[in-house]
Computed example of a mutant assay.
Amino acid sequence: MGRIKITIIVAVSENGVIGRDGDMPWRLSTDLKRFRALSMGKPLVMGRKTFESVGSKPLPGRPHVIVSRSHSFDMPGVETVGSLGAALERATALAEQSGVDEVCVVGGGEIYRQAIDLADVLHVTHVETVVDGDTTFPPVDPGIFECIAETRIPAGEKDNYPTRYAIYRRRDA
Rank of each mutant, 00 (worst) to 15 (best):
V78I: 14
G109Y: 12
K42V: 03
E89S: 11
A155L: 12
E157R: 09
I6P: 01
V10S: 05
G22M: 09
H123N: 05
E150S: 14
T7Y: 06
G19N: 07
G143T: 04
S72I: 13
E52I: 12
G41Q: 00
K158I: 04
G133R: 07
R27C: 11
A37Y: 01
D23I: 06
I8W: 05
F73D: 10
A149Q: 10
L94G: 00
Y161A: 06
F73M: 08
M75K: 04
A155N: 05
S68M: 12
Y161N: 02
F35A: 05
F145D: 00
T30Q: 14
F35C: 03
L118E: 03
K33P: 03
G22Y: 00
V103Y: 01
T136S: 14
I8H: 01
I66P: 09
R152D: 13
A119Y: 01
G2T: 11
D117K: 08
V78L: 14
S39Q: 09
I18G: 06
D134T: 01
L59N: 01
D101W: 00
E96A: 08
A166Y: 02
I144D: 03
S68F: 13
V81F: 08
I167E: 06
V131I: 13
D74N: 13
R27S: 11
E52M: 14
P139G: 01
T151V: 15
L38Y: 07
E146L: 10
K49T: 09
E150W: 09
L32S: 05
G19E: 00
T30M: 14
S72L: 15
V124F: 07
K5Q: 09
T129C: 14
G108R: 01
M46Q: 10
Y161S: 04
A91K: 06
V131C: 13
S53F: 15
R171G: 04
D120Y: 09
I111D: 08
D74S: 15
N160G: 05
H123V: 02
P162G: 08
Y112H: 00
M75Y: 15
T151S: 14
V45F: 13
D31K: 03
Q97N: 05
H71D: 08
L38R: 02
G61V: 00
L38V: 04
A166Q: 10
G107H: 11
I116G: 03
S13F: 00
K57G: 04
V140R: 03
E110L: 12
G108P: 01
A95V: 03
V127M: 10
I8A: 02
G133W: 07
N160T: 07
E110V: 07
I153V: 15
A115S: 03
L84T: 02
T125M: 12
T50R: 10
R34L: 13
T136P: 07
P25M: 11
K42D: 05
D134Q: 04
N15Y: 04
S29T: 09
T151G: 07
M75I: 06
G109S: 15
M46P: 07
T50D: 12
V67S: 07
I153M: 14
P60F: 00
K49Y: 10
G85A: 13
S72A: 15
A86R: 11
G82K: 08
L118D: 00
V105N: 05
P43F: 05
L84D: 06
P58L: 14
S98E: 11
G99M: 08
E89W: 12
V106R: 01
I111H: 10
R113G: 03
V100F: 07
E52F: 14
T80M: 15
D134M: 09
K158W: 13
T135D: 11
A37G: 04
R113Q: 09
